[in-house]
C-alpha cells in the first residue's frame, strides 16, 4: 500500500471531519492526499474486503483475541 493511501486511511481513522469530507467528495480528498489512481479506483469500487486486505486489516486473515 502506498504511503499516501496509508496516510489517507490513517486520517480517515483518526479525523472524523476528514472522514465526513471524504464521504461527500471522495475523489477530491483522495486527490488532496495524492492517492495513486489504482488505489483510488479500488476505494471507489467499494471493494472493502480487498482494500482491508491491502491495508492489513482483513478480519478473515486476522485472529482476534477471544477469551
Amino acid at each position: 500500500m502506498s504511503d499516501n493511501t496509508h496516510k489517507l486511511l490513517s486520517s480517515l481513522a483518526e479525523d472524523p471531519e476528514t472522514l465526513e469530507r471524504f464521504k461527500k467528495d471522495p475523489e477530491g480528498v483522495m486527490k488532496e492526499y495524492g492517492v495513486p489512481e489504482d488505489h483510488q479506483k479500488l476505494i471507489l469500487s467499494g471493494d472493502k474486503e480487498k482494500l482491508a486486505d491491502e491495508a492489513g486489516i482483513d478480519h478473515n486473515k486476522l485472529q482476534f483475541i477471544i477469551i
Partner: peptide
Amino acid sequence: VVDGLTLDR
C-alpha cells in the same frame, strides 16, 4: 495483537 493499520501506527 492488532490489525495491520494499527501495527503501522
